[in-house]
C-alpha cells in the first residue's frame, strides 16, 4: 500500500508538472500571440478610447472662442483644488452691465486625480477631458497650465 501510494504520487506529480510545461510550451511556439506593444514606436496607431481621462482642456473653436463664463463651478467641484479660475469684471460696451470674464483658467495637472467631477459640474460644457496621456516634463512648473488660449473670448450667446 505504502509503495503503491509512493509510486502513484510520483506519477501524478510528474504528470501535473508536464501539464504545466505544456501551457508555457504552447505559448513559446506561438510568437504570434505575444501581447507586448512597443510603445513609442506604435504612437501613430495607438488610439485612446474617447472617454479616456487624460487631462482637462478648455474647448476652443476655430475663432479662438471658448464657452467658459467663469462661474467657478468646476473650482468648487474639484476635490483637490487643481482648478483655479481668475476672473475679471469688465463692463460690456453694448449693454453697459458689468460681467464676469475669465482672465486665467489655471489648471494644476500635478494635483489632478482625473475624477471627472469638474466636467460634470460645468453648466456650459466648456471643458472636457482630452486623451493625451504623455504628461512627463522636466520641470514641474510646466504642469501648471493656463487653459484659455491668449486672446480667446467667450462665445456669444453663452451667458
Amino acid at each position: 500500500m505504502g509503495l503503491k501510494k509512493y509510486i502513484s504520487d510520483i506519477f501524478y506529480g510528474v504528470k501535473s508538472l508536464i501539464t504545466g510545461m505544456k501551457v508555457t510550451g504552447h505559448y513559446f511556439v506561438r510568437p504570434k500571440e505575444i501581447i507586448t506593444q512597443q510603445y513609442p514606436e506604435n504612437r501613430e496607431s495607438l488610439k485612446m478610447f474617447d472617454r479616456f481621462r487624460g487631462e482637462v482642456v478648455l474647448i476652443h473653436d476655430e475663432n479662438n472662442m471658448h464657452k467658459c463664463t467663469g462661474c467657478s463651478a468646476c473650482e468648487l467641484a474639484c476635490p483637490n483644488g487643481s482648478i483655479e479660475i481668475i476672473s475679471d469684471k469688465v463692463i460690456d460696451p453694448e449693454t453697459g452691465k458689468s460681467t464676469k470674464v475669465i482672465d486665467k483658467f489655471v489648471y494644476h495637472l500635478s494635483m489632478c486625480t482625473f475624477c471627472n467631477l469638474c466636467i460634470l459640474s460645468c453648466p456650459t460644457d466648456a471643458i472636457k477631458m482630452a486623451q493625451n496621456f504623455e504628461h512627463s516634463v522636466f520641470d514641474r512648473s510646466e504642469l501648471t497650465k493656463v487653459l484659455n488660449k491668449p486672446g480667446s473670448k467667450i462665445m456669444p450667446g453663452i451667458r
Binding site: M48, F49, D50, F52, R53, T113, F114, C115, N116
Partner: peptide
C-alpha cells in the same frame, strides 16, 4: 477604459 474613462481608479 472605454466605458468609465480610466483603467484603475475609475470613479
Amino acid at each position: 477604459e472605454e466605458t468609465c474613462g480610466a483603467r484603475l481608479t475609475m470613479n
